[in-house]
Design a protein around this nucleic acid. Sequence first.
DNA 1: TATCGTATCACAC
DNA 2: CTAACGGTGTGATACGATA
Length: 425
Amino acid sequence: MMRNIALIDVNNFYVSCERVFNPSIKDKPVIVLSNNDGCVISRSNEAKALGIKMGEPWFKCQDLVKKYDIQGLSSNYALYADMSNRVMSILSDFSPHQEVYSIDECFLDLTGFEKKNLVEYSQEMRGRIFKWTGLPVCVGVGSTKTLAKLANHIAKKNSQFDGVCNLNVLTEDQLNSLFGNIDVGDVWGVGRRLASQLKALGINTVLDLKKADSEYVRQQFSIVMAKIVSELNGNVCIELEEIAPPRKQILSSRSFGYPVRDYHSLAESITLYMSRAAEKLRSQESLASVVQVYIRTSPFKLNEPQYSNGMTIPLPSPSDDTRQLVKTALWGLKHLYKRDFNYAKAGVSLSELIPKKLIQFDMFESAQSASRSASLMSTIDRINSKMGRGRIKLASEGFSRPWKMKQENQSQRYTTNWSGLISVK
DNA sequence: TATCGTATCACAC
DNA sequence: CTAACGGTGTGATACGATA
């Protein structure tokens, strides 16, 4: 049976979130910056038209910024996450089968909805999302996730589609003429590297890739590429994942706002990052068996001495206790740290994660101490979730955070903070 | 010989 | 004003070590 899979994607998501609460930037070139105000990660159509590139370092954009009065905003993840939840919740009403694929995208399985006109149904989604959140979205429909992605791309690029493209109602000829005009690099899963390798073999367009011989592709590239080709031909190889599997690894790292030289600042930042990682670990009810820590100087400062090092430390027994995880990470840091370097970034990761309920007691830890740890952690998590992140924290996090990241132009948390609400323009 | 561990690459967003 | 370049996660592959 022909599947109908929809991919809904918010246009220029972060920029669009900012515009909902600040209409004065509605028709202006606007961009949102990565953490630390480092790189461009979201652009309005106006900014794209002026030649601002995705991923470009902010300081390199300054000529264009001054010339055209481009608004550069620090990222505001509290706002984006909340807006994302609203969009996903609205979309969940349109199908019983939803996969939240990223902060601004989800797949819906519309198979079995054929008695409806799916283009009209998709327009209904767009209308409701715009009315209830102020965000513009495009919808692509196809018989596989790869085709739905492609359909969405077509809807975004061609205004005559009015934001919705259903490939399943097009003829073979119509499909071929569309696919013949789309660069192979626009296919989901084909990045810069693979695109250039494909082109070297004469596979330049989506149509070329769709028609490519499956065995040839598998042998020249990989099983992944073979699946992509198969999906382009309408065979489902990538299933909808309605229930997000638990993370296999949890990372927390950040660049510093200023170069850091002293051990204590590094230790404070590592404490903070590990505390965040441990919260995420507990929220998915896992325990970590391995802790990793790393620090490094800036690879972009070519005239400064470089140092980058990390350490992997197995835990005596799997844990989700912030105190133990931090202690382990700091033990690692002590061994990694070298004086007289300008550190630019530090990070931690938790891996070899196992479901908490599968774990047996550690023979060296009493049941009583395990349950004390669990109730302390869950109490801290409850307080922090109610009273605000970081309300209760380890003292080794410090209080001044002179290394904290730069965010010089951040909007209010309009939807998640009372004082942000009051300042809506 | 099959499997493991790990580094590296590639990709998404 | 300075100076300044993200973060999180997955999977494939290559390759030497190990059982």
